[in-house]
């Protein structure tokens, strides 16, 4: 199926079931631990179906979506440090959404979020692709600078707007998977999964592109359209995730690298594995943290940054030595 070996197909099915299992298992935890037998009991239905389930779905959506975007961008710009947050795309999506919700409304805030992300992808990647000799870390600097620029605009706006709105923006920007209704959580997961599948169809081409651009051209891959397609899809996923759950960083860095370390470099397999493992990763982290600090809440973006920053430093060291 889809040209996977039997062994890998089994692995994929295993991860699919693991995701379901982790998702259901995580439903048990939070304030009080509910035994499996009472999980779908009527008296727990509000708590489980409308509070824990949307949060777990949102966790999965964010983890899976951002990880797959990270993997794709890392291959496209041949930069191990490419990631929506570090490359300023999350910041762009956030600013677009904020501007949209102030000056426009409804669907337009998502559209603006998407447009600004696409613009930023092309802007940052343009620099990344032009200075091919540059170290991966210098490309990250461009992205980080762009990200700072966007968040500074958000800060300036927050000074001129009423304090109620400011705190809303601030809290949401830190990353928050608790606010989604069941409908919007299911809807976001569906959209992100759909775009991920579309991205997956390019995996084989990305493999060829990974070998070298000339090789890809002689193999009949239309590089330009491949790059544009992946950029746009990546921006779409980022825009959906960020406008729903805020700018959650480093997930797109951590998960793809672990997958590559464990399973090698076949993008086709890695796309699927990254999707599921990214989702599982964030469900586990969020469930663990919320159970530990209960009844307080710590924004999930803060936690991923805590895990991700040391990871980034390790990666930068590793790849700096590799370049020499």
């Amino acid at each position: 199926m889809f040209g996977f070996e039997k062994k890998n197909l089994l692995l994929i099915f295993f991860l699919l079931f693991l995701s379901l299992f982790v998702g259901i298992f995580a439903l048990r935890y939070g304030g009080k631990t509910i035994p499996f037998s009472d999980l779908f009991d009527r008296q727990n239905s509000l708590l489980v179906v409308h509070l824990r389930l949307p949060r777990i779905l949102a966790d999965f959506t964010v983890g899976a979506g951002l990880s797959i975007v990270g993997l794709s961008f890392q291959t496209l710009v041949r930069n191990p440090l490419a990631e929506p947050y570090l490359f300023g795309i999350s910041g762009a999506a956030a600013l677009g959404y904020v501007l949209g919700s102030i000056f426009l409304s409804g669907i337009y805030s998502y559209v603006l979020s998407f447009l600004l992300s696409v613009f930023t992808v092309f802007f940052v990647m343009f620099f990344a692709l032009r200075d091919r000799d540059n170290a991966p870390s210098s490309m990250v600097l461009t992205g980080v600078a762009v990200g700072f620029f966007y968040s500074s605009i958000i800060s300036v706006m927050s000074i001129f707007l009423s304090s109620r709105f400011v705190k809303n923006i601030f809290l949401w920007y830190l990353g928050d998977t608790t606010g989604l209704t069941l409908n919007s959580a299911v809807f976001s997961l569906f959209i992100v999964a759909f775009f991920s599948v579309v991205m997956f169809f390019d995996a084989e081409k990305l493999n060829i592109y990974g070998v070298g651009e000339e090789f890809a051209q002689t193999s009949g891959v239309n590089i330009k359209s491949l790059i544009y397609r992946q950029y746009i899809l990546g921006s779409l996923i980022t825009a959906v995730v960020v406008s729903k759950c805020g700018a959650i960083g480093f997930v797109g860095l951590i998960v793809p690298h672990i997958v590559k370390m464990l399973f090698g470099k076949d993008n086709k397999l890695n796309f699927v594995l990254t999707f599921f493992l990214g989702g599982i990763f964030l469900i586990i982290v969020d469930t663990l943290i919320k159970s530990i600090v209960y009844p307080m809440e710590i924004p999930i973006g803060v936690i991923t940054a805590m895990i991700g920053s040391p990871f980034l430093i390790l990666l930068m060291r590793k790849f700096r030595y590799a370049e020499r």
Partner: peptide, 25 residues
């Protein structure tokens, strides 16, 4: 940042708060 699960656990008839500082979600 109140914890929604804790609120639900307390089975309130009414939740009352201020708009200022409260997350719309």
């Amino acid at each position: 940042r109140p914890n929604l699960e804790k609120i639900l656990e307390l089975k309130p008839d009414y939740v009352i708060g201020m708009k200022e500082g409260m997350n719309k979600s």
